[in-house]
Computed example of a mutant assay.
Amino acid sequence: MVADSNSKSDLSFGRIFASSAFSACFAEVCTIPLDTAKVRLQLQKQAVAGDVSSLPKYKGMLGTVGTIAREEGLSALWKGIVPGLHRQCLYGGLRIGLYEPVKTFYTGKDHVGDVPLSKKIVAAFTTGAVAITIANPTDLVKVRLQTEGKLPPGVPRRYSGSLNAYSSIVRQEGVGALWTGLGPNIARNGIINAAELASYDQVKQTILKIPGFTDNVVTHLFAGLGAGFFAVCIGSPVDVVKSRMMGDSSYKSTLDCFVKTLKNDGPLAFYKGFLPNFGRLGSWNVIMFLTLEQTKKFVKSLE
């Protein structure tokens, strides 16, 4: 639970985990079309001079959403929703549920007053890294399903669904393959989680000190937008590397993917899909934190 920085959680870990998982899943359902567009843009390679066939297929967030819907149907925008929900139940529940206990561990249980921003960042990075280490297989399957576009007639899809994807990856590539891209994923999710939770915590704390502001929906809205913006600005490069490694098995390592992306597509490639990424993460954070705050109030009312 992300509370104001002076207070300790008054809900059990189990209830915080459940509230966080529910809120993260709800936000995932609402925003996964933007996430699908973001992944397609990130995986799109740079056009080769003189080669008409290499011209980019997807252009911009809305253009990518429109192209996918037109060529593959509206349901294609929700590709990967099942493993996406698997991911949010594990990752969303753990990263948020563990935040307050880990923050208390770093500050000490007898700490009084505002928690330093540095401690919030370290706590959020820790919970993000731990959570994604457990949830990496769900992230891998989600990306694999999202990257598969419209196929020529007669060409079968690589996976028939999320469960088939899990079993096929284990059978064809080994159990360890489920943790493909774990390095950049830990970096990406640790960094983004630090940006999201620490900035939400800090922005909310700052807003509540302004006369006239209270712990209500408006405060949660501004804090959620701030969390999404900082997360995208800081995490976009590692997000691109993570998506490319999970969507293309030809990369040998995180460094290999980074170097090849920089060499072949230029430094701006690390911010490919920035607008859809912000549209997705910004809206995702607003929806998730608004839902989380209301869910916490509801859970408390049941006690």
Rank of each mutant, 00 (worst) to 15 (best):
A37T: 04
N136V: 10
V299C: 03
S20H: 04
F105W: 12
Y99T: 00
G181W: 00
A223S: 10
F270A: 03
R87E: 15
K296R: 14
P83S: 04
I132V: 11
V82F: 05
L225W: 09
G226A: 06
S23T: 04
I134V: 13
A131R: 02
A269S: 11
P276C: 02
A18Q: 02
G176V: 07
S75V: 10
A76T: 10
S250D: 08
R158C: 02
S253D: 01
S249C: 07
Q294T: 10
N185K: 06
L290H: 14
S250F: 09
S5T: 15
R188H: 12
F298S: 08
A194Y: 05
E173L: 09
V122K: 10
S162I: 05
E196Q: 13
Y159H: 05
K8A: 15
I186F: 00
A194V: 01
A131W: 01
A18N: 06
T107S: 13
S167R: 04
E71Q: 06
K252F: 11
T206K: 15
G60Y: 01
D51V: 15
G73R: 03
R144V: 04
L225I: 10
G266H: 03
Q146F: 05
I287C: 09
L94D: 05
P276K: 00
L178N: 02
L221R: 01
A123R: 09
N6L: 15
T180Q: 11
F125C: 08
V259L: 07
G154F: 01
T31W: 00
V122H: 10
R95V: 14
T254W: 13
